[in-house]
């Protein structure tokens, strides 16, 4: 039936840390050695704790 939402957007973290505030978007990279590229993901962060970003 071909019903998939298309496109994506920058995650909005403003309410993504549950009761914790303030909740802000950060970029997280993984430790790589001398790789040509290192994967990067977004996370939400509040007082030192990371939270998953909302789904689009």
């Amino acid at each position: 039936s071909g019903m998939f939402a298309t496109g994506s957007s920058l995650p909005d973290c403003s309410h993504a840390c549950g009761p914790c505030a303030p909740c802000r978007r950060v970029m997280v990279s993984f430790e790589c050695s001398v790789a040509e590229s290192c994967p990067i993901v977004y996370r939400c962060m509040c007082r030192g704790r990371y939270y998953q970003v909302p789904s689009n």
Binding site: G2, T6, L10
Partner: peptide, 26 residues
């Protein structure tokens, strides 16, 4: 994407005709 937005066709679904699978660019 903003410039091209008008070129996207809106896909309606047979399962839930009320919902629109539009590009979720913000």
């Amino acid at each position: 994407l903003l410039a091209a937005a008008s070129e996207f066709t809106v896909v309606t679904t047979s399962d839930s005709p009320a919902l629109v699978d539009a590009p979720q660019t913000g």
